[in-house]
Design a protein around this nucleic acid. Sequence first.
DNA 1: GGGACAAAGCGGTTTTACCCTGTGTGAAAT
DNA 2: ATTTCACACAGGGTAAAACCGCTTTGTCCC
Lengths: 214, 214
Amino acid sequence: MKTYSVVIVDGHVLLSQAIAHLVDSFEEFETLYICNNGQELLDKLKQNSVLPDIVLMDICMPELNGIQTTQLVSEIYPRINILALTADEDEHSIINMLRAGAKGYLFKSIEKSELEIALVDVITQGYHHTKNVSDVLIKFLMGESESKKVNLKQQELQFIRYVCSEMTYKEIAKSMYRSPKTIDGYRDALFKKLQVKNKIGLVMYAIKHKLYTP
Amino acid sequence: MKTYSVVIVDGHVLLSQAIAHLVDSFEEFETLYICNNGQELLDKLKQNSVLPDIVLMDICMPELNGIQTTQLVSEIYPRINILALTADEDEHSIINMLRAGAKGYLFKSIEKSELEIALVDVITQGYHHTKNVSDVLIKFLMGESESKKVNLKQQELQFIRYVCSEMTYKEIAKSMYRSPKTIDGYRDALFKKLQVKNKIGLVMYAIKHKLYTP
DNA sequence: GGGACAAAGCGGTTTTACCCTGTGTGAAAT
DNA sequence: ATTTCACACAGGGTAAAACCGCTTTGTCCC
């Protein structure tokens, strides 16, 4: 008997459809609908009177990404269980997704049987954490993690994006309408804050943390 | 009637399984087996006497990636039709995949009906090219593409990876057992060859072209 | 062998990056 | 009203990066 409804949110339609098939093949679950991005999910939730029991959410999506969407949805509809389902296996994504309110984090490299277990778990227990994810969480709690939430100001974000272009600091200063010495200050502050020693470090940080997309 | 067999190669098991479901839902196609990476595909092809009609191949995979695998398989088993099926939409991947012998290039953002059309096409016509892919091909042939195959020497590859770390040229010189001045030469040569003006440009090139993974 | 040519290596020079310390100025806190 | 703090900015110095031109080395071809 189909008792629980699932919504799938993934930027890649073919994958959404394929996963929908898979979900429908499970005893107790059925796909309610699929969405291409976070905005579409919000719209559908507003329109439909029937709320899903579970949302399977990818992270990498155009417009509204998985983390932002999770944050919004879990605030407005706390009864919906959101499970991350993504290829993104890095620490930051996991931490941020769980912080945003996800009830579990699944890699796309799991077996379909594990997906079913996760779905059942989240219904019966309210969460599902695999070993990999637990390890990251523990590492994080132990303070061994580098994800100590560094929050960057708008200005610093803009600066770091300029650094990723081939501009010199002098050129960046012009573009940002600041004195070159001020730019020196921005740089030094970021070096300290992000624990890097030069421009290259900044660029790598920006790319790893998706502040800049090559 | 199930007449044509399909093999799916994708680093993410859940996706392979989901797509397999989808393929099995099509009239004329059925999944023969799935593989987690290129090496596994080569092994299976060697072991089994029955060869698949079509291989759906992802690019991003551990060990042997999709492009390398396609090259090998299309040389040894020219009768197998390889279709790229990937989230990777950049020009380089498309060009390299087709150069390696793929009979078509599908984005994971297509509809499942399009997947079926592509499978039928590749059986009846021997290829399937969507508009997006054709556009890239034309652009490439017109010489407007930046993919003008710059081939880098082993030395230059190693150097460019060092540059992506936060090392100075002096440190790189030590690591590569070369004089700092020689390293200067490597750098200048690469600046010219890759049309960049500084270290940052090199780093961006390396990342865009997957010479270095952050 | 010797000339043509490209790549590797090297010295000197200028520009940029990096680092430390310090000043003035507003806005918020006490 | 003064303390505090964040911010824009400056001077001045060293190290590194980037650019130029020159010599050496090796290879290919007559």
